[in-house]
Design a binder for these strands. Sequence first.
DNA 1: TCAAAAGTGTTAAATGTACACCCATGG
DNA 2: CCATGGGTGTACATTTAACACTTTTGA
Lengths: 252, 252
Amino acid sequence: MDLNQKFKDFVSSQDLYVPQLSVDCVIFGFHQNQLKVLLVKTAGVDIWALPGGFVEQNEGIDEAALHILKERTGLTDIYLEQFRTFGHVDRGNPEFMKDYLNNIGIEMPDNHWIFRRFISIGYYALVNFSLITPTPGEMTEASEWFDIKQLPQLAFDHNDIIEKALDTLKLMLDTRLNTMDRWAASLLPETFTMIDLQNLFETILETTFHRNNFHRKMVSLELLEKLEKKFTGASNRAPYLYRFKSRIADLT
Amino acid sequence: MDLNQKFKDFVSSQDLYVPQLSVDCVIFGFHQNQLKVLLVKTAGVDIWALPGGFVEQNEGIDEAALHILKERTGLTDIYLEQFRTFGHVDRGNPEFMKDYLNNIGIEMPDNHWIFRRFISIGYYALVNFSLITPTPGEMTEASEWFDIKQLPQLAFDHNDIIEKALDTLKLMLDTRLNTMDRWAASLLPETFTMIDLQNLFETILETTFHRNNFHRKMVSLELLEKLEKKFTGASNRAPYLYRFKSRIADLT
DNA sequence: TCAAAAGTGTTAAATGTACACCCATGG
DNA sequence: CCATGGGTGTACATTTAACACTTTTGA
């Protein structure tokens, strides 16, 4: 069933989705030493927003988030974590929904819940940048990666949501180094150099580390497997490539 | 407007609350070296549950949580933190609401949202045990402190919710020592001994610390003010009393 | 004066931080 | 053979962990 059809079902059945509830996903990617966020521009509304959606009556909220990610990225098996629910009374701009529905040619009664304040459950996802080609979906006219340092003004309180997602991500980097193979692997290609890994940490945490200390720390976790050297063509020593040990299990 | 009246308004107006959404509060207290949770038993339903409530259309979710805490504890100005939202498809037991509404003499149509799966936003609160006398409210026949180690079987997925709240609390203790004066103060009386503080940490984190190392660590944070000695009557050296420096500002 | 419990000091291990040096690579 | 940048070793500082000793209190 396509999304447009689902939307139209609002009129005949109010029972498809949980009213006034939505899920918003902050999809993080890492590319050229920049932390990126995937944003979408909804058809007929000239403002960028987080990819989001509603929760069906017969699905859990985690499943709803996975659905949205599947739609936007084509990927399943994504690193996904709920981080906070947003429900201030003044978080919505009701014009958004009016413009949007108007544009796709759907009429809804003024008192429908779609025009009310939404409670939105925030999830963040970590994905491999190079595996995703942002392509407009059925409901969106555009889909693009944005540098987290250069975000436009977003719909609703989505700027706040991203900020909170980033805070949570930073906290995880600091406190869950020992499970790095589960989340760092999601942001990096299968093989990478030690410098790549360091850049990832430095970019997200907005700090710098001493090369050798970082190197030793990572090796001491015993999560990495050293592979052959990577010859870049540059006139300097070739770095080793690494891979997370847990990846080997994934491949079998 | 009393709660019972509010409930009756469901019938005439479906617009008072956000449908299918609730807020559940895990209220932590500390007493006799035990971490306690305040639970309520709803009139006519023979099962303990977390104190919770609905979100009014014209209030934010944080405000809703504060309302619930005010109702249950009489306290305002409580340390409160949102930790997770629960929304599995099978989290509810529909019989609960039927029994409950039946008992308080309210009839609702079978297809009303009150009988559906709820999405529940979890908050945890830290309160001073001795300031609260659990008293049954209008909607509850009982209200009691339970040792976190000896919880009964609870309604819905409330056992899971408490477990997750405790996990989050532990994580905070580990990672936010420097803001201890904001949360530890909520669980302790205004003045306390160093051993009291140590017991609090050890109970929640389920570990033990060396007395002197703990002492030095706490002093080094410069959040504590040493007061006069506390003579307990025991035949040993009297411990000093301490108070969080930030408390002084509170008193002015 | 003794046991109990609190306060304080000292040392060793572990960890974190900074710097120095060595090695491979292509021009 | 030189500049560049990655790999590795070592010394120092800081933090953490463990233990020993001293002080105060009421019996």
